[in-house]
Amino acid sequence: MPPKPGRYLPCFGRRTGGRMSDAVTVRPKDWVPFRCRLCGSCCRNLRGNLMPEQVDAYRLARFLRERGEVEYMEDFYTNYTYPDMLEGFFPVFLMHTTDPDNSCVFLKDGRCSVYEARPRVCRLYPFTAFPGQREKAFNFFQCMDSHSAHFSDGKILVKDWMYQNFSREDREFLTAESDNLLTLGQLFKALGPDRLKENLFQILYYRYYNFDLDQPFMPQYEENTEELKRILQNIVGR
């Protein structure tokens, strides 16, 4: 099974250091102790961990374009992320961080400077969601992290939190991405190191770059993914 961005640390979409034991299952009707204290703790110590999903990058690029900081989707990846390989064969982008505490590049003066367009894992914190099976559309989990002050008082209802922060587009993307990752991971692995390197630009282009910021995200994602599958299947079948 291919690596799944977000699977490594369910509570914050981090690539390393997390286990499913770091999270507990919650139900939509559950009340959970939580209060955001605007401390920025969950925005720090992220070096090599935080992977923006394509829909996150699309929203951030649109938001930053309004501020005159980027023009195209590729500009976001160039300016705010760097490339890496999961398991040596699955290309991803990781968010840049800043010293001295490896905080998110968008944390400015202790506050998120892109709050309106922050990634899904940031909006859902202290929860995360994965597509379910059978009758369940999604399974929800609560992060059990070291920021104990977050869970000392206050209460939130899981279904209300998801209603406010887990949009229909998020759900559509996460469901489609979960289905596509298995096929893409198998194709990337089947290419082998040499052919993966030879075709890396095409992979990055269709998986991450080829998005018109003035057009809806999901139709472009679906078209790009199908085209990438077709190209890779042809290469693997040679």
Rank of each mutant, 00 (worst) to 15 (best):
S103D: 02
M73G: 01
L60T: 02
I235H: 06
D153A: 00
L60Y: 02
R44Q: 15
L9M: 04
S146H: 11
R111A: 13
V92R: 02
C112T: 03
D212R: 07
S178I: 00
F12D: 15
T25G: 03
E53Y: 09
L94D: 04
V55I: 10
T97C: 00
N45P: 01
V121D: 00
E223S: 13
G68Y: 14
L9W: 08
K4P: 00
P10R: 12
I156L: 14
S146Q: 11
G18W: 04
E198M: 13
V158T: 08
T98D: 09
F130S: 08
E69Q: 13
R37S: 15
C122A: 11
C143H: 00
R230D: 13
A61G: 10
E172R: 05
F173H: 12
L200K: 10
V121Y: 01
L60D: 01
K4D: 06
E53G: 05
R111V: 12
R111L: 12
F140S: 04
Q54K: 01
R19G: 06
M95F: 03
G185K: 09
R27A: 11
N234P: 00
N165D: 07
K108R: 15
R19D: 13
T183P: 01
D101W: 12
D22Q: 11
K136H: 07
F151E: 03
Y82S: 14
C122H: 03
S152Q: 14
N224E: 07
M73V: 04
R44C: 14
L9T: 05
E169G: 06
F141Q: 11
P83G: 09
C143S: 05
P216Q: 11
T98Y: 09
E71D: 13
Q164S: 12
A23H: 03
D170K: 06
Y221T: 04
N102W: 14
Y209L: 15
H150M: 05
M85E: 10
E223K: 14
P5T: 07
P216D: 11
